[in-house]
Amino acid sequence: MIPLEHYLYLSGILFTLGLCGVMMRRNVILVLMSVEIMLNAANIALVAFSKYLSAGAAESVQLDGQVFVFFTIAVAAAEAAVALVIAMALFRRLDTVNVDDVANLRW
């Protein structure tokens, strides 16, 4: 049997990788992908908690984590759709998808 910690370690590693992607990639598409990875890592943790931490609780409560994952996926889909359109608008307007080139919003 796999202990809960291992799932969480997996989740943490994937999350950190996504974080690295956000911090270190310049392509806006890749940044968005990294955000999706981070959301996905959180999903693993949620499902693992649902399986392990709610033992003994009522059945409806035990499934809370999985329902949350549903919502996460829905939000991720919405976010991806909007963000990708913004990326396209950015490209159309500035002819670039490099986030370092888009630093106009400052003092």
């Binding site: 809960l4 969480l8 649902s50 399986k51 392990y52 033992a55």
Partner: peptide
């Protein structure tokens, strides 16, 4: 995660998603 303590030792439930 290491600090989860006693909660980490719990058995998985029988639930199927």
């Amino acid at each position: 995660v290491g600090d989860l303590g006693s909660a980490s030792g719990s058995k998985p439930n029988e639930l199927v998603g």
